[in-house]
């Protein structure tokens, strides 16, 4: 049997990797999980801006970039490139880096500094032109 914490962790990993369906089968147990498609990635007309959620890669307290990290603060409306540092998820002194999964435009809306985020929670929505 799968315990609830296991299922929660699997769900979080699915969210983090954009997986919407998962089936595990063996002679003793069977588990089928399905999630709604990630919001914001619904098809839109070419050329219209749409935004995609940047999800949290772990559990931690949100810290924006540009504090004591020697990096410039992100200006809403500015361009970020895939792989660019957006902020951090802090647990104690350890900071897990959150990067832009794709090129995009810096949004105006961010979590409060110190806000607790879980796996797969939305850190921000990165506007993309496609």
């Amino acid at each position: 049997m799968f315990a609830q914490p296991d299922i929660d962790r699997i769900l979080a990993a699915m969210r983090a990797h954009g997986v919407t369906r998962l089936e595990i089968k063996d002679p003793k147990k069977r588990l089928r999980l399905s999630l709604p498609p990630a919001t914001g990635s619904s098809p839109t007309a070419p050329g219209t801006p749409y935004s995609a959620a940047v999800t949290s890669p772990g559990i931690g307290r949100y810290l924006p970039r540009g504090g004591d990290d020697g990096m410039a603060e992100l200006e809403p409306g500015a361009r970020v490139l895939a792989g660019e540092v957006l902020g951090y998820l802090c647990s104690g002194p350890v900071r897990r880096v959150v990067v832009a999964p794709h090129d995009g435009i810096v949004p105006a809306e961010w979590p409060e500094t110190g806000a607790l985020l879980g796996y797969g929670d939305t850190v921000c929505r990165l506007e993309t032109e496609q």
Binding site: P57, P93, V94, R96, V97
Partner: peptide, 12 residues
């Protein structure tokens, strides 16, 4: 290491 990397808080 996580793909995006790790950082650490140092005293000011």
């Amino acid at each position: 290491l996580p793909e995006a990397g790790l950082s650490l808080e140092l005293p000011a």
